[in-house]
Amino acid sequence: MSPDSRAPVTRGGPSPLARLPRSLARALAPPTWPGTVERPLPRRNVGTEYDTSWSRTPAARFARALVTDNLTRPFVRLVADPTVIGAEHLDPLRGPVIFAANHSSHLDTAIVLSALPPRYRHRCVVAAAADYFFDRRWKADLWSLTLGTIPMERARVNRRSVDLAAELLESGWSVVIFPEGGRTPDGWGQEFRGWTAYLAKRCGVPVVPVHLHGVRPIFPKGGNRLHPGDVEVRFGAPLRPLDAGAPAGPRAGRHREEDARRFGARVEQSVAALADEAETDWWSARRRAARGETPDLRGPDAAPWRRAWSLPESRRSTGNGRRRTPSAPW
């Protein structure tokens, strides 16, 4: 009855022509691995394992210099318009240093790089969170090329990362570090991690305290839009571990030196003094620093709302901010 009812009954599915695409695909597919043969594990080239040495080849450095001067700096000028204060502290410096800055925004790296004098700007690496900037291969490639990042583990001192940083310092590169280990969640500072001081001591390089003021309102953690504003970048006087004027030999009076923890605290205090200066003025900040009354970067020890309420930047944002009406579903 149906037109096909007289077609011959045969075995085999569709015609060879109809099967062509599939047979083609099958022919070109990678061969399957025999179950009896052991498979090697794939090499992981992300996180702290990621090898950044390619990004310090002359070609990559040249590319980065182009990006920094032609994209990064104009962009930073556009959204943050940084005013650099205290650049004179950098003038006498020669050779590698560690820049230790407070951290509140993704923009911080770009702003610090833009504010550095050219001799440091083009010969420095940025310690960046391995779990954030190096978790995917493409991110690792992108950031090492454009910002010169090296992977650093935030929570603990990872031998490999620290060795790499030390190696770079010793070969003449400077390192930008955000000792807080992450952007501030609420506007107040977090505790400085130990590796800044450790590195400085191990390599005998000075630490330059840096304070970035006004970046958080532009692009805070969790923000999804840029709100352009003005930023101040303050460099403080370089700090060296006390009694470590001479290059620290392997046995050079270890017991007499200021230990890493104390030195770290001093770095933090210097950044806090810069912050105080940003809020008030240089003179009163200096006097408070002398009296040991510099306000703590980490804010008051009170309920979250009072910490937020006493945040210096909140007092300036009394306006009702974004005045967007919610998009309606009609």
Binding site: D186, P304, W305, A308, W309, L311, S314, R315, S317, T318, G319, N320, G321, R322
Partner: peptide, 13 residues
């Protein structure tokens, strides 16, 4: 206003 909102909303207050 933003000041109040930012001081309270993120903390669930």
């Amino acid at each position: 206003g933003s000041r109040v909102f930012d001081a309270f909303a993120p903390h669930g207050l």
